[in-house]
Amino acid sequence: MQLLNTLLIGITAGSIYALMAIAFVLVWRSTRVVNFAQAGMALLSTYFGYEAVSRIGSFWVALPVAMIGGALFAALVELILMRLLVKHASSGPIAGVAPIIATLGLLGVIRSVISMIWGGQDLRIVAPISNNGFTINGSTLVFSPLKLLVLVVVAVLLILLTILFQKTNLGLALRASAHAPEIARLSGVRVDSVRTLGWALAGAAGAVAGLFQTVNGNGNFSPDSIEFSLLLVSGFIAAVIGGLDSLLGAVLGGLFLGITISFVLMYVSSGLFFIAPFIILLIVLFIRPQGIIGVKAGRRA
């Protein structure tokens, strides 16, 4: 029973990491930038969701509001910051580190502005359904309706995203701009707009990850909550495990990370909560530096 519980907790957490990893992958594919502000964007979207919940009172409205808000904000960042960055800082000794520094700066700006608007204290979003575990044969599982909901929503989003990428012209344009931007441009794809769309999709995915990370935890969140730093690191690690270039890889990476952490916490030591992701990342990078799915050359960014 403990084994099953550990596994289910891991899968739920892992599916949230997977969403975050997808956000990283979408941004990486569209602009070859690892967006370290991703967690900040997710946090901002969570505040959008909070506003929606407190005004309208329904989590089901808050979810799309957060997604749309997150998508718009991410698109704005790409339009303003990323294009300026390409224009001004794409050569010289700093070119390799400029995107990293710029997105970190953005993370700082987002956090400060959030604290100015909403204050630094904990806010709370109440989960739409119960987080009390199911009871089977008289024993209570840790797995709850809420966790089931998280899994279902994540699965639905993944299916929608797959359909978008594999079955539509837009998806074709997204894939083409990721793999060969010059050729895509020659074939009449508006690569710049497609890039903005990639960021917007990432913003929406991050928004869902942020909301679910909050309600799957204790429901509290604040500009400084460690949950979001963890989301940043876990999402990044999941994306790296998956090869940083593949959506399927991101999902597998997220699940793998979630389950592994869950087992480490249960069977090794619960004090390893913060350091476990780092150790897993190091092991992965040493054993299989190209990720689960991914080409070897991809690692040299």
């Binding site: 390799g96 990293i100 780092f278 690692r299 960014a301």
Partner: peptide, 26 residues
Amino acid sequence: AAARLSGPYLAGTTLALAIGLPSLAN
């Protein structure tokens, strides 16, 4: 570990360390 990594991978790895290491004090 870092010598095998570059750019964003290295940044992410050291970020994970920065979040993880101080908690070891407990």
